[in-house]
Computed example of a mutant assay.
Amino acid sequence: MSNVPHLNHARKSGDEPFLEAKNLRVGYGGRPVLNDFSVRLEHNEVLCLIGHNGAGKSTLLKALFGLIPVEQGTLALEGRLVAKPTPKSMNSAGIALVPEGRGVFPGLTVAEIMRLGFWANGTPKGEQAARLDWVMDVLPMIKKFYQQRAGTLSGGQQQMVSLGRALLSQPRCLLLDEPSIGLAPKLFQDLLGPIRALQKERKMSILIVEQNVKEALKISDRVMVMKSGELIKEGTPDEFADNTQLMELY
């Protein structure tokens, strides 16, 4: 894995989380969505972030991936401060984002989307075939519609393409933004299975933002609840098994 641009050389520790943000202030047009917000994602952990619409969940993921600027606060990867995160630098650090709404180009075939993915993450040509074979092993269904245009695919198939494109970089960390949107519950379950299996195999860190709380909790190690840009509760999935309590938090 290549070194991360814009990182200082602070001492690393085995106890450092994979990703840690402290006292973040992030917003749009001068209006903060997150203010003094902190979060840490451990190595080999699935962290589920839940909350009502507009709570700031997607804004947090975009800030962590460098898609929107951090106005205040610090971001560190394995104990090393990131001075100015960008999608390119975060991808180089082993982080991949699966955006809300899938983000596939409907006029392109799946094969063309994968080639764009290789271009975006800078995968050398000599490694591309092996990477693609690996993704197909993780998500074998993609083989069936690999030459189809994305616009002709179902929502579940498009989500597989979006996830497959993110996996082309063989990331150490996945940021998943509402992967269940537009999917029937069974399709979402079929998608979560390979994600959890891959996470365990590669000891990945995953931060998943999700509205389908019941299914997301099944693959999570820890849960955080956001409300109006603030963290209001944190715990294990077992602590959130009571639907009545969850509704009160929302």
Rank of each mutant, 00 (worst) to 15 (best):
R11C: 09
A150P: 07
G151A: 00
S162K: 05
G151Q: 06
M226H: 05
V104R: 08
N8E: 06
Q211G: 03
G73N: 12
G51A: 08
D133G: 08
L108S: 08
G117A: 11
H9C: 07
W119I: 15
P171T: 15
R196L: 11
P185Q: 12
L34K: 13
P69C: 07
G94E: 13
V209M: 10
E71L: 09
P185N: 11
N23T: 03
G182N: 01
G164S: 09
S154C: 02
Q158L: 01
S228L: 09
E230Y: 03
A96L: 03
M90A: 01
E215I: 01
L198R: 01
A166C: 09
N44P: 02
F37D: 09
K186M: 13
L7V: 14
L249E: 02
V46A: 13
S38P: 04
E239S: 12
Q189K: 03
G235D: 00
L168T: 13
V223L: 10
Q170H: 14
M90W: 02
D15Y: 00
V4D: 07
R40H: 11
F37E: 09
E71Q: 12
G79M: 03
M90R: 10
M226V: 07
G27A: 05
K186G: 01
R165C: 10
R80L: 08
L97P: 04
P87R: 05
N121R: 14
L187N: 05
W134P: 08
K218E: 13
V98A: 12
G101A: 03
Y146P: 01
A129I: 12
G29R: 09
A96R: 00
L47W: 05
A21H: 02
I232D: 01
P237Q: 10
L183H: 02
N35V: 00
Y146L: 10
M226L: 15
Q189C: 05
R25C: 14
C48G: 13
K62Y: 07
G122L: 06
G107D: 05
K203C: 11
I232H: 03
I50F: 10
Q147N: 10
P185H: 11
T152C: 04
A130N: 11
V223C: 12
D137A: 14
R102A: 08
L60H: 03
K62P: 06
I68S: 10
T123Q: 14
T152N: 10
G101F: 06
P87Q: 01
M204W: 02
P179G: 04
I95C: 11
